[in-house]
Design a protein around this nucleic acid. Structure first.
Lengths: 223, 223
DNA sequence: ATATGATGTAAAAAATTTGTAATGTTTTTC
DNA sequence: GAAAAACATTACAAATTTTTTACATCATAT
C-alpha cells in the first residue's frame, strides 16, 4: 500500500483525488499547511508526491527542489499552466510527470500506478511459473494464489516447480525422486507420497482443490 | 550514453527525433522493419523505447506487451490518438509515458531525460542501493533509514550490500560466507547466523522490522 | 593502559522440516 | 470378487536449520 502526498490548494480537487485513490488501495493525504510541506512529507513518509505549481507562499517548483535535496521520491506535477516551458522546467528540476488540468481521474490514477511501478516494483527480473490461478515466483520461492501467499518448504517447492514446469504432462515418481534427493541415498518410496500430500494440503488450504492429479502407475500431473 | 529505439512509421518524424536526441548525447535509432521490432530491440539493446501506436502490421500495444514479457525497458508512447481510454490502456499495459502528437521536441527530450533518470541514473550515478526506506551509500558505506543514520561494521555492511543487490531474490548462506570470508580459513557456520542477527538488530532499532527474511534451507531474502 | 567496538566461538534453545511407520483407501489384475 | 499393488493419510520423532545469549579475543584509539 503506497502513500501519496497531494500538495494542492484547491481542496475540492485534493479531496476528490484522495477519495478516488483510496479505491485503488493507495493511501492519499493532502497538505493543508503550505508553509511546512517538507516536514509533512517527512512525517507522512510519502512514496509519491502530486504537486500543484501555483500554491500559497511558495510554488511547486520550490518544493520540488527542496525535496530533491534529500529525496528521490517520484514527483508528478499537476497544473493548469500548460505551456511547454513549464513542462520542460518541471522535468529538469527533477520532476517525473506533468499532468495538465483539467485532468481525467482515470488517467491520473493510471499514471500514478505506472510511476509507482517504475520506481518501486521494478528492476528485478520476472521469473514466474503460472498454472491456473497459481503463480510460483522462482526468485523467492513463494507461491501466490490470487492475493494469498503460500510459503513452501524446500521439498514442497521443488515438487511444485517440477509439476508446473511440466503442466499438462505427466511427471513420473522417479523424476520427482531424482529431483528431490538425487542418487544420494536410499529414501523410502513412501516419503515422496507424504511430500505430495503436504503440497496438496497447502494448495487445498488456499482453495486449490484437486490441482495435482494422480495417474496411477505413471505419476502425477497438473491439469 | 543511453540508447533510444524509435518505433514510428513516419520517417520524417522519426528522423527529426533522432537528430535532436543526438544533440543531447543520446544514441537514437528508428525501426524500419515493422515485423521484427523485438529482434531489432534485442540487437540494439535499447535503454528506452519511443513507441507510436498506429503502425503497420501490429500496433504499439502489441509490441509493448511483447516487450514486457522479457524486459522492463521504459516505454514512452507517442500518438495522435488523444482519448483518455488509450492513455489508461497504455499505462496499464506497462507503458511509462504517453505523449500526444504533435509534440514539442523540447518537451519530448525533457520527458525522456526524466524517465531515464528515474530508471537508471538515480541510484546508479550516486552509487546508492535502496530497499524500501533504506538507502545504502556504497561510497562511504553508510546506511540511512529516513533521516536516521545507521552505522554498520564491515561484516554488517557486506551482508546488507549483498542482500540489497539481490533484493527480491534469495541469497544463499554459502554466497554470504563467500562474500564475508572467501575461502580464507575455516569459519564456523554459525558465525554467519550471529552476524545476520546483528544486522537485524540494527535495522530493528531503526524501525525496520522483519526486512531480512529467512528461507529455511535456502538462504535469506529482502522483500 | 584502558575503553570501545568489532569479531568469532560455544552452547543451549527454538523453530521448522523431514522421514518413517502404521494404517486406510483406491485401483488394477487375475 | 478377492488379492495384490499403488497410493493416501495421519501422527510422531528425529534431524536439520536457525536463533539467541553470553563470553573471550583482538584491534584501535583516546
Amino acid at each position: 500500500m503506497y502513500k501519496i502526498l497531494i500538495v494542492e490548494d484547491d481542496f475540492v480537487i485534493a479531496n476528490s483525488i484522495c477519495d478516488h485513490l483510496s479505491k485503488w488501495n493507495l493511501e492519499a493525504k493532502y497538505v493543508e499547511d503550505f508553509q511546512n510541506v517538507i516536514s509533512i512529507f517527512k512525517e507522512f513518509q510519502a512514496d509519491l508526491v502530486l504537486m500543484d505549481i501555483l500554491l500559497p507562499y511558495f510554488n511547486g517548483f520550490h518544493w520540488c527542489s527542496e525535496l530533491r535535496k534529500f529525496s528521490n521520491v517520484p514527483i508528478m506535477f499537476i497544473s493548469s499552466m500548460s505551456d511547454n516551458m513549464n513542462i520542460v522546467m518541471a522535468m529538469n528540476m527533477g520532476g517525473d510527470e506533468y499532468i495538465e488540468k483539467p485532468f481525467d481521474i482515470h488517467v491520473l490514477t493510471a499514471k500514478i500506478q505506472a510511476l509507482l511501478r517504475r520506481t518501486y516494483a521494478l528492476t528485478e527480473q520476472k521469473n514466474l511459473l503460472t498454472f491456473k490461478n497459481l503463480v510460483l515466483n522462482l526468485n523467492d520461492t513463494t507461491l501466490t494464489c490470487q492475493d494469498e501467499k503460500i510459503t513452501l518448504s524446500r521439498n514442497e517447492y521443488l515438487i511444485l516447480q517440477l509439476l508446473m514446469e511440466n503442466s499438462g504432462k505427466i511427471v513420473s515418481r522417479d523424476q520427482l525422486m531424482e529431483c528431490l534427493w538425487g542418487n544420494d541415498e536410499f529414501i523410502d518410496d513412501n516419503t515422496l507420497t507424504v511430500n505430495i500430500t503436504r503440497v496438496r494440503k497447502k494448495l487445498e488450504a488456499a482453495g486449490c482443490i484437486d490441482y495435482i492429479k494422480t495417474k496411477k502407475g505413471l505419476g502425477y500431473i497438473l491439469e
